[in-house]
Each structure stands twice: as C-alpha cells, then as structure tokens.
C-alpha cells in the first residue's frame, strides 16, 4: 500500500516527535554524565573541575547509600507483593457474577486517580496521626496504645500508602487479563476432573503470568521513582530515604550536583535493567 511518496511524507510526520524526544533524552543525560565527573557545588564555588570517578566512589561509600538501597528494595518489594497478591485475589472476586459490578469496579479503581500528594497527606493526617487519626481512634477503642505510624512504623506506613495507590492498577490489569480467559478452557479442566484450586493453579495463573509480569515491571519502574509520598510524609526521615530521595537531597538540598549526578547515573542504570525486561515483553507483543 505504501508508495515512495507516502514514505517520505511519513518520515516528515514522524520527525517532530523523534527530534523532541531525542533532545529530551540526550541533552540532560549528557549534562548529568558530565556533572558526575566533576566537583560541582553551585552555592560553594560552582564548577571546581574534573575529579574522575570520585563522585561515584563517594556516593557508594557514603553512610547513607546502603541504607537507602535497602529502603528502596523494601518499599518496592513490599508494594509489589501486596499489590500483586491482593490484585489477583481481587480481580478473581470482581470477575464473579454479582450485583452492581460496575459500581464496585469504580470504587476499587478510584485511588489510582488521587494525586500522590493528596493521598500521602490524607493518610498521614487523617489516618495515621497518633492523636486525631482514625487508626488512633480505632486502637483506643480496643484499649490499645495508638501507634506513631510515620516514625515507629515508617516503612510499613509508606508501603501501605503506596500499595493503596497501586492496588487499583494491578487489579485493573489483572481483571482485564482474567476476562480474556476463554471460559471453555476452565470448563474443559472441570470436565477433566480438576477441582477449583487446581483449575486456578493450572489454568488461571498461567494465563495471568504475562499480565503479572507486566504489572511487576511497570510498577517497579514507577515505584523506584516514588517521590511525593515521601516528600510530604517523612521527608526522608525515620529510615524512609530511598535512592531517589537521597539523590534529590544531594542535588537540591545539599546542592552537591556532582555527587547527586553520579547517584543519578546509578539510578538510570538500575531503571534500565528493569526496562530491558519490560521492553522485551512489549516488543514481542508488537509482532503479533
């Protein structure tokens, strides 16, 4: 269908998007790379020259680095486990025949549309506040001592908030995948004598495996970058400083751009490792 003429027209139509994204990617990336090899303190002398890999070494050997990696892993891992396990259960439940399915779906999806600053603040103040929060009331009602959620159980609290935001995403995608399962497959398995649990394990779960992988990868990329939730709740205190937040502090709070940029390069490498797996799956899908 394509003629020579339409091909060159197509190239021109594609150019703006490609050029813009190329600039958006290359310019800042190059700058970050350049800064990462420099001693660069904008408020204390500015550009103080090349220092090789010093920033990379210093970033990794600082006392804050390994705890931040650990925090990142705990938050990302915790949220992934919670959202995927509950997402599967919830999507199976929502797939069952019931009254008012549409409304329930809407209720479940709603948290995804709440802006991160709002959800963090609402949870922080109205639920997790040790004096006036709903949890405090609940604990007191049972005669227990209210918990100082964001300082004593800070990681758990952040995981709870972020999971609440991302559970709808996992549920929605898994529900879509479940609904594409041919019910005849399940009926065939039933005729073959498979009880419900085996049907789930041998038919439903394998059918969902691709969707689960996609949820896993996409969430990982977004979760590695969570910022607002920490910014408005603990500001990185009480052991909630993730890698992203640590880099943010180095760059904008302590204005050590060289060091922060080296951290940024680490973050980019980390994200790329995850991205490669995601792109493989998406790319395969493109061929069909």
């Amino acid at each position: 269908m394509a003629t020579q003429h339409s091909r060159s027209a197509a190239r021109i139509m594609m150019a703006p998007a490609v050029i813009l994204l190329l600039g958006w990617m290359l310019i800042p990336l190059t700058m970050t790379l350049v800064f990462s090899f420099k001693r660069y303190l904008p408020l204390r002398g500015g550009d103080l020259g090349w220092i090789g890999f010093d920033n990379y070494v210093r970033f990794v050997s600082s006392s804050a680095f390994w705890p931040s990696v650990q925090t990142t892993l705990i938050i990302v891992g915790g949220v992934l486990v919670i959202t995927i396990v509950f997402g599967i259960l919830l999507s199976i439940l929502l797939d069952q025949p019931m009254w008012g399915q549409g409304v329930v779906r809407i209720l479940v999806i709603a948290p995804f549309f709440v802006m991160p600053t709002v959800s963090a603040l609402v949870w922080k103040n109205m639920f997790m506040d040790p004096v006036n929060g709903l949890f405090a009331h609940l604990w007191k009602a049972f005669g227990a001592q209210p918990i100082e959620w964001l300082s004593d159980a800070s990681l758990f609290s952040i995981i709870l908030i972020v999971s609440w935001q991302w559970l709808p995403f996992a549920t929605l995608i898994l529900l879509t995948a479940i609904q594409s399962l041919d019910s005849e497959q399940l009926e065939a398995a039933e005729m073959d004598g498979a009880p419900p649990l085996s049907r789930f394990a041998y038919i439903t779960l394998p059918h969902l495996s691709r969707a689960i992988t996609i949820v896993l990868l996409i969430q990982t990329i977004f979760l590695l970058a969570i910022f607002a939730e920490i910014f408005v709740t603990t500001s990185g205190a009480f052991g909630t400083r993730t890698l992203t937040y640590l880099i943010y502090q180095r760059v904008l709070e302590s204005q050590n751009v060289g060091l922060g940029s080296a951290g940024g390069v680490y973050a980019i490498i980390l994200a790329n490792i995850v991205a490669i797996f995601l792109m493989r799956i998406v790319g395969k899908n493109l061929d069909t």
Partner: peptide
C-alpha cells in the same frame, strides 16, 4: 506507513519514558 525501523523507534520512545526523573533533575 510502517518501515523496518518503526518497531525500533517505538521501543526507543518507550525507553525514554523509563528514564528516572531524578537522574536528570539538575540538568
């Protein structure tokens, strides 16, 4: 009007979305 490179361009566009924002914050 797909060409041989269409898929690569799409994948590359996707990869720019995966760049962590904090990595390019200061620039």
């Amino acid at each position: 009007v797909p060409s041989k490179r269409t898929k690569d361009i799409l994948m590359w566009m996707l990869s720019t979305k995966m760049l962590p924002a904090v990595g390019v914050l200061y620039p």
